[in-house]
Amino acid sequence: MDDVFELGGIALTSRLFIGTGKYSADALIPDVCAASGAQVITVAMRRVEKGSEGIVGHIPEHMRLLPNTSGARTAQEAVRLARLARAAGCGNWIKIEVISDSRYLLPDGYETAKAVELLVKEDFVALPYINPDLYVARDCAQAGAAAIMPLGAPIGTNRGLRTKEMIGILIEEMTLPVIVDAGIGRPSQACEAMEMGAAACLVNTAIASADTPVHMAEAFRDAVRAGRMAFLAGLGAERSGGARASSPLTGFLHALGGEHADL
């Protein structure tokens, strides 16, 4: 089945994006990349520390880097980080993350939309991490975002699609791709997001914190693919008020109610 996801001028065949945070050993990352089939991988930027090697050496070359602006509390700080990332030569994609709430790490919609506007003017492919709020999503779209990335649950919680209703509204109302980011804890939840019509899922913690990240990456690969195929196939309607038999209700071995079929 040919199913290409066009994002920022690139044709992606995988709709699973993965992260690089929280692995017990960064050396697992190449195998996770292979098992997940992902083509896009997020990284963060931080001040260098003595003895720290950084993450880039662990990322296979075929992966497209998606730097995030985590640590930014304002649109201006996000712009500064985005420029640094681009100057490092890793392309013009940027996951815009503007957060000043340290307990729940919820994104600041106003500053995020402002950052989108500033960065699109500088020719970035802007991918904003947002609360699943229709007005914020529209502001981001208006500002030229390439997709929107609403959260399913707070970052790193593995709590699943707690915001399912709101994400459903974004999928229905927005023409931009909706990439569910944050909170997805199980492959079944990624599958559900894809069945709903999400364009892609970004999964980090659920893979990195699994007992066997490489196997979990494979599980997410299959779940995202299954959910996507189900969406494209078109889910059958739900019914209530009694069963609807799938098998014929005539021609039973022991005829019911005096029914006899003539040969």
């Binding site: 992260g19 690089t20 945070g21 929280k22 692995y23 960064d26 997020t42 990284v43 963060a44 930027m45 931080r46 001040r47 260098v48 720290s52 950084g54 993450i55 880039v56 880097l65 730097p67 995030n68 985590s70 640094l84 490092a88 890793c90 970052i155 790193g156 944050a182 970004l202 980090n204 913690t205």
Partner: peptide, 10 residues
């Protein structure tokens, strides 16, 4: 100087 590098992140 601000000296940064890429680290693991989501």
């Amino acid at each position: 100087l601000e000296i940064l590098h890429f680290v693991g992140g989501g």
